[in-house]
């Protein structure tokens, strides 16, 4: 079956089985390998992408149910203000060890910050607990989300204060 997907603002036409998970369409048909395979059943969060702005486990979403929804992946998240701030915080705090989970972490964090500009510790835990980091870089993930939140708020507040 042919599907035309809207990924990171670009049209990608792929020819795959209707039951193919979005994860494998992204990785193997659209050649966007930043989204990672970890468990295949939505337990680790490594495959997290945004579908119309919502964080979704792409290993659990069939390509046939995507339709014209806007898909954002780690390759495209830097184009959003929150995504860019998160990437910057991840770099400055030097979050990753092996790095394999970090795309999913950033995508989940970006969905969190998009709906909640100043999450509490408990809200960060609630949002991020589905994203495993086998190297346990959690302390820095938490710090980076907070830094990005502060900077996003600061950037939003700056024009008012000026």
């Amino acid at each position: 079956m042919q599907y035309t997907l809207n990924i990171n603002g670009k049209k990608h036409t792929v020819d795959v089985d209707a039951d193919t998970p979005l994860l494998w369409v992204l990785r193997d048909a659209a050649d966007l390998k930043g989204t990672k395979f970890g468990c295949g059943i939505g337990l680790c969060g490594a495959c997290t992408v945004h579908v119309d702005g919502e964080a979704v486990h792409s290993c659990r979403m069939r390509v046939s149910s995507v339709g014209e929804s806007a898909i954002t992946t780690i390759e495209g998240i830097g184009a959003t203000p929150v995504g860019a701030k998160l990437q910057k915080a991840w770099l400055e705090i030097d979050v990753p060890q092996c790095g394999y989970c970090q795309a999913g972490q950033i995508m989940t964090a970006a969905a969190l910050l998009a709906r909640n500009k100043a999450p509490t510790d408990a809200e960060i835990e609630g949002a991020m607990d589905g994203n495993l980091c086998r190297c346990a870089t959690y302390l820095r993930i938490r710090d980076a989300i907070k830094q990005a939140a502060r900077e996003t708020l600061g950037a939003a507040a700056a024009p008012k204060g000026a």
Partner: peptide, 10 residues
């Protein structure tokens, strides 16, 4: 980390 820019951009 030298690979962190590549990691955070996928």
């Amino acid at each position: 980390g030298v690979d962190v820019p590549a990691i955070v951009t996928g």
